[in-house]
Amino acid sequence: MSLRVSSAFAALALAASVTVAPTAFAKPTSGASAVKMIDTDNDSTVDMKEIEAVASATFDRLEKDADGTLDAKELKGRLSKAGVRQADPDNDGTLDKKEYLAAVAERFKAADPDNDGTLDAKELNSKAGKALLALIK
């Protein structure tokens, strides 16, 4: 196999892994790079469906003890204690996936001041956008 073909397969495999399983952010991300990582339909914005896919994968990655919830230790500071209380309507001190995704949706809405249902790089660079990215990184 030539180096060119081998490189093409490696690039294809990398592209497939990004499309099939949204990648998690290794470090704080700018709005523009976040859009590139999350925007599966390549429209230069991210919608709730795209954010929810990444958030769901993030929840699954963080949920280490297989109890179906995230506790403060598993959340690793993504939400403050007050944020956990706000996102935890059953007051059990943990967030199940539904509660976690509701918190993500709330942050998405806060980062979408024009209420168009999408976030661009500028909106993701806002304080509310950065709060959203912190939750799904």
Rank of each mutant, 00 (worst) to 15 (best):
A131D: 15
A10L: 14
A110T: 10
D71A: 10
L62C: 06
L3D: 09
L3P: 00
D112L: 07
A11K: 11
D92E: 08
Q86Y: 11
D116P: 06
L12D: 05
A57D: 11
L12A: 14
A72T: 15
E74W: 06
D90Y: 09
V5D: 12
A110V: 03
E123S: 08
R4D: 04
T29H: 06
A111Q: 05
N91G: 13
V54M: 11
L70R: 06
E99H: 10
L12V: 11
E123P: 06
S56G: 15
D114F: 01
E99C: 05
E99R: 08
A13Y: 02
E123W: 05
E106C: 00
E52S: 14
D88R: 13
L135D: 10
A10S: 08
G68E: 10
A55D: 01
S6R: 09
V46A: 00
S80I: 13
I136A: 05
P22G: 13
R85M: 10
T29N: 02
A131S: 14
V20R: 14
G117Q: 01
L12G: 12
A55F: 07
A21R: 14
A53L: 08
D96L: 05
A111P: 07
Y100D: 07
S126A: 06
A13W: 04
S56P: 00
T58Y: 02
T94I: 08
L132H: 08
A34P: 03
N42I: 03
R107P: 00
V5A: 13
G83N: 11
A128V: 03
V46C: 02
K49V: 11
Y100C: 10
V104G: 03
E99V: 02
I136H: 08
S7G: 11
I38E: 03
A121D: 02
F108G: 03
S56E: 14
F25C: 09
R107W: 01
G129W: 04
V104C: 06
E74F: 07
T69I: 01
L132I: 12
D67S: 03
A105T: 05
L119A: 01
F59E: 05
A110F: 08
G31R: 00
D47H: 06
A13I: 04
P28W: 03
D114E: 14
G83L: 12
V35D: 00
L62V: 09
D90R: 09
G68R: 10
K49Q: 13
N42M: 06
K127V: 07
